[in-house]
Design a protein around this nucleic acid. Structure first.
Lengths: 171, 171
DNA sequence: GTTGAAAGGCCCTCTGC
DNA sequence: GCAGAGGGCCTTTCAAC
């Protein structure tokens, strides 16, 4: 086949096929998962059973990974949001860092390229909790430095949303 | 009152009151919002109508801000996750940056303390889209520097979760 | 894919306790 | 706060097209 000969092809095309109707459904559900199938149907010009079939497929294929309630950080007593960048010597950090996932404060753990190795997103009750967490991280082996970025205000915060067009980059 | 005399008190206690049962419900719903009221009820030793009443109150008070479907970034064709730190001269950046919220790629926009002013979380189809976005940001007035942190692997990614204990910091 | 219909489940409310 | 019962909406499936 001409597959490997085409330089435009991505190296790893997604194994699941998603069309524009799926994308629109995903966008709507990513915004509000309580929408009824009938409502979704009229948005994409399909009937409720057809929509149900697509959504079921999207869940089965792992495109939709779950349905969750979003909470207000301040209202639950965690007004302090921060990003923590941890720079390490080697890679022995990994196991220790993954343990941080057990803390309710820690929302995200990523490994990253660039001048930092691990990026954490944490939401805490106050600066004292943040201090305690930093102290704990510093106790890990191989930690060279930590930089904290305390968030002053959040203007946007949402989950992944599929692009609407294949060639475009926006809306 | 002895309120102002107690140095332990927080400066701004949350206006909505949430007890431990609420917190447990919030944790369960933040994990999986499709849980049935009966199931939630037996987890907190309450009946379904009682749970329903609490959840309704939590939504009315804005503690629960919504119910959304979570999507797999890779499966929807956006495997490239990155954090972008934008450093600016003044504050004129704000309006321009907020416009970025219109892009589907941009998931989060925060203003931050420290050596960076704005933190963006973006999820894109590839490095070309990232380059285009960076070029766009550089065109903004007052942008001094940009640092991008491309995520290699995500170990944890979830929404806010209330602490389970008043004094504790974990599970 | 569609329409129509039917069964079942759960939400939600209301009533008393 | 509990228990129980009822109405109604919606999901979900099945038929036939």
């Amino acid at each position: 086949m001409a597959k490997e000969m085409n330089p435009v092809k991505r190296d790893r095309p997604p194994p699941v096929s998603i069309d524009d109707v799926d994308r629109k459904l995903l966008r709507l559900l990513a915004e509000d998962a309580t929408r009824k199938y009938a409502e979704l149907g009229e948005a994409v010009h399909l009937t409720a059973p057809a929509v149900h079939e697509r959504v079921k497929r999207l869940k089965r294929d792992g495109v939709i990974t779950g349905t969750v309630a979003t909470l207000d950080g301040k209202k639950i007593g965690c007004p302090l949001l921060a990003f923590i960048h941890v720079d390490t010597d080697g890679w022995g950090l990994t196991d220790s860092v993954l343990e941080l996932g057990g803390l309710a404060d820690v929302e995200e753990i990523h490994s990253a390229a660039g001048d930092t190795c691990v990026i954490l997103k944490v939401r805490m009750r106050g600066t004292q909790d943040l201090e305690a967490l930093l102290a704990r991280i510093y106790r890990f082996e191989g930690v060279r430095s930590i930089r904290s970025h305390v968030v002053l205000n959040t203007y946007l915060e949402r989950g992944p949303k599929p692009e609407i067009e294949i060639g475009g980059s926006a809306e």
